[in-house]
Write a protein that binds this DNA or RNA. Structure first.
Lengths: 346, 346
DNA sequence: GTGAAAGCGCTAACAC
DNA sequence: GTGTTAGCGCTTTCAC
């Protein structure tokens, strides 16, 4: 029985431990494990048997260092508690797993500074591609992405000046569609809930679309309700509802940044005696799985978040292929469809 | 101007590139970057200036290989779309970040096989600790955890035979508390929605507690409603509601695995003409942020998921400290409080 | 089909 | 306070 590592605290077996026990070289173990190159069936079986017996698990840090491939794809999203990002992660992960790539997820909590830190620590792991949905972004973070040297896919929201590839929903078009719906259903005075002041984001884009749509329909100018950070979706809704009731009593329709916010808006509005949709129509975003089950059922915007993840993955695969051929994948700009889902709240 | 890498596609600068330009050795760069050991202020400034100029980002795979510390903590959870896990991740991440540790998240989609794969690929990254919430777990996965050689913290649900540390909610006690509430409010025939057949899980534990509580209160035996997988929380609720209406018409109270499920149950029940809570009382779980805003507002169980993450992190830190002293941290078993939140649905 | 040598980019250990 | 040497555990490359 060979001993590896210093006595006492047993160290994990290495590839050469396996090699020794299998009576082959480390190189052969490496090949057997990666189904790479030609290893005879007999040798492979022997190696795998030893691997199993030892419970050997390859050290990917070593492999990454040696091969120059980390096997990692980074994804940075504003928040993990928002199920939209969970669904994107799932789609992306499913697309990447067959290639032997692992998804490394970081979340920024909607903070540019935190995002920058996340990105920096992610870059230390040398990801082979990066998917990022920013709410706001520091100059330095933008520079890091530009110089990352790997495919970067921005998603959910199309920035004014994309790094390279984008998979997004056209939030301005969403806003216009919502305005159209409000106009068609006789609403006159629209409002949009937006986050705290910041650079352009998907929320402000939708508000912009709503404003455009309202103007075209000859409605009153859209009021913006700033009601706190997006981390507390429901809390934001409560504040917004209070703002409407207290200071914007003439508002008869409101677009919310998220279905969860919309539910809270409705709850608070009703609690304080307003009727939904009679007094105020409430429009959500995201088609959260509960949206169809609440009372009133939420009128909202649906889009396929899982598909978004899949498309991000496909874009990356495409870029890998291009790089393999020594080329650069042309910037790719994908706009995913959305759907106006009319239920009862608006 | 020194050139690194082969011409054409520029390679990322390495530590020795920085060293050369700063006129010091690589070791000094390493120290300057890690605020470790003694580096004169002057030297450090010089080094950092070059780092900045070059946009140098250390390769952590190399560092990990050399130091034996990956800087990674793994977390495996059943699903990312369930905000409970997002909140745990946030708490854990916040606790770990000050130590320079990154959270590496994997999700199993409630499948033992997928969990095993996730765990295996995670182990290749040599995490310094592992947090895992399993819904079901393969023998092999259990063995891998046992032999991981790093602190393992199981969370949310206390397994029959824990690997070592546990931070959980007492789901059986939750079930009993729910039974008590139902009994006190005059309910006679209870049901619990559980996932598809599987080993013990937090859902079945709560059902077990409900059963115990019902027995003690002299109520009819609890009916179990198996309504599909936990990935589609709302879908599960719709099915369960149908099952109640179609085949279990005498049920007057139901415990749901999740608030989202509860909302769907209520929606479907009402859609089909049943009144909540008059005909059927509906109890949720998790105190999701919308729970207080739906109509009727959800009666549910609340617990602090963020705190759970923080406690997991503290346990890990404690175990690191013990290991540093050559000891093994004693198995730690933390049970987090929960709260019965009575609102309108039950 | 298999092996030997070299080296990936860092850091531990020790020397000065 | 700083440098040198060696080596972490793999994979690349090339030889056989």
């Amino acid at each position: 029985m060979p001993s590896f590592g210093k006595a006492g605290s047993k160290t994990a077996p290495t590839m050469s431990d396996v090699a020794r026990l299998a009576g082959v070289s480390a190189m052969t173990v490496s090949r057997a494990l990666r189904h790479d190159g030609a290893v005879s069936q007999k040798t492979r079986d022997k190696v795998l048997a030893v691997v199993d017996e030892l419970g050997y698990v390859p050290d990917q840090a070593a492999g990454a260092l040696s091969s120059g491939r980390s096997g990692l794809v980074g994804m940075i999203a504003p928040a993990l508690v928002n199920p939209i990002f969970g669904m994107v992660a799932r789609g992306l992960n499913d697309t990447l797993t067959p290639l032997g790539l692992q998804l490394f997820i970081g979340f920024s909590d909607y903070g540019a500074e935190r995002e920058e830190h996340m990105l920096e620590s992610m870059l230390r792991r040398r990801p082979e591609a990066i998917a990022i949905a920013s709410d706001s972004r520091s100059e330095r973070a933008a520079r890091m992405l530009l110089n990352a040297g790997v495919p970067v896919v921005e998603f959910l929201h199309r920035p004014a000046t994309p790094i390279r590839h984008v998979v997004a929903v056209d939030h301005v078009a969403v806003g216009r569609a919502v305005a159209r719906h409000f106009a068609e259903t006789g609403r006159k005075r629209l409002a949009a809930i937006v986050g705290r002041e910041r650079q352009t984001s998907n929320t402000t884009d939708r508000a912009e679309g709503l404003r455009e749509g309202a103007r075209q329909a000859g409605l009153a100018p859209v009021r913006l309700i700033s009601a706190g950070g997006p981390l507390a979706l429901a809390e934001q809704g409560v504040r917004a509802a209070a703002e409407i009731l207290d200071n914007l009593a003439d508002i008869d329709a409101v677009l919310c940044p998220h279905d969860i916010t919309a539910i809270a808006v409705i709850g608070e509005l009703r609690r304080r005696g307003a009727r939904v949709p009679d007094d105020v129509a409430v429009f959500g975003f995201g088609d959260h799985e509960v949206a169809r089950h609440t009372l009133p059922a939420l009128t909202t915007i649906g889009f396929n978040a899982g598909l978004m993840g899949v498309e991000i993955g496909k874009l990356m695969i495409n870029a890998f292929e291009a790089a393999r051929l020594g080329r650069d994948a042309a910037p790719f700009n994908l706009t995913l469809d959305f759907e106006v889902i009319v239920r009862d709240s608006a």
